[in-house]
C-alpha cells in the first residue's frame, strides 16, 4: 500500500492504494468520481481524459502513484462555456464519451493558446479551423458519431 496526496478538483485528497491502481480507477472507485469514463482501458478512446496541472492525459494508462501532489481536474470540477455549447450544438447522444470530450477540449484550447502545433498546422496560421479541431480532438472517439456537433460546439467557444 502507498499513501499519497493529490489535489482533485481543488480539494486535497489523501489516498491509500496499491501502486498498480490507475488514476482512472482511483478517481472512480476510490474517490467516487464516476464522471470520468472507462472505454477501452488501453489509451485508444479518450473517454478517461482528465486534466493534470491543466494538461490533458488518458487516466487509464496513468498509475495514480505517479501523480502524487499534482492538480487533477475531472468533469466534476469543470465549469466552462464549452458545457453549454455541447448542449446547444447536440455535441453528444448517449453521453458516454462526453466528459472526456469536454476535458480534452479544455486542454486542447489551452495547448492551442500556448502556440502548440498540430499535425495539420500550416506555417503562419494561428486560428482553429475545422481541420485543426478535428485533428487536435482525434484522441477522443465517439461511438455515437456526434462529431459534427462536437466540432461546432468547440468552434463556438474558440471564436
Amino acid at each position: 500500500m502507498v499513501t499519497l496526496r493529490m489535489r482533485v478538483n481543488g480539494v486535497t485528497r489523501s489516498l491509500e492504494l496499491e501502486p498498480w491502481v490507475s488514476l482512472l480507477d482511483a478517481l472512480r472507485e476510490r474517490l467516487g468520481l464516476t464522471g470520468t469514463k472507462k472505454g477501452c482501458d488501453q489509451g485508444a478512446c479518450g473517454a478517461c481524459t482528465v486534466l493534470v496541472d491543466g494538461e490533458r492525459i488518458n487516466s487509464c494508462l496513468a498509475l495514480a502513484v505517479q501523480y502524487e501532489d499534482r492538480d487533477i481536474t475531472t468533469i466534476e470540477g469543470v465549469t466552462h462555456p464549452i458545457q453549454q455549447a455541447f448542449i446547444e450544438h447536440d455535441g453528444f447522444q448517449c453521453g458516454y464519451c462526453t466528459s472526456g470530450q469536454i476535458c480534452s477540449a479544455i486542454g486542447m484550447l489551452a495547448e492551442h493558446g500556448a502556440g502548440m502545433p498540430s499535425a495539420v498546422t500550416e506555417p503562419g496560421a494561428s486560428g482553429l479551423s475545422e481541420a485543426e479541431i478535428r485533428e487536435r480532438m482525434s484522441g477522443n472517439l465517439c461511438r455515437c458519431g456526434a462529431y459534427n456537433g462536437i466540432v461546432d460546439a468547440i468552434k463556438e467557444v474558440a471564436r
Partner: peptide, 12 residues
C-alpha cells in the same frame, strides 16, 4: 511526433 498517437498520449 505530431503524427503519433493522440494529444493526450503525447502529453504523457
Amino acid at each position: 511526433l505530431l503524427a503519433g498517437a493522440s494529444a493526450q498520449l503525447r502529453n504523457m
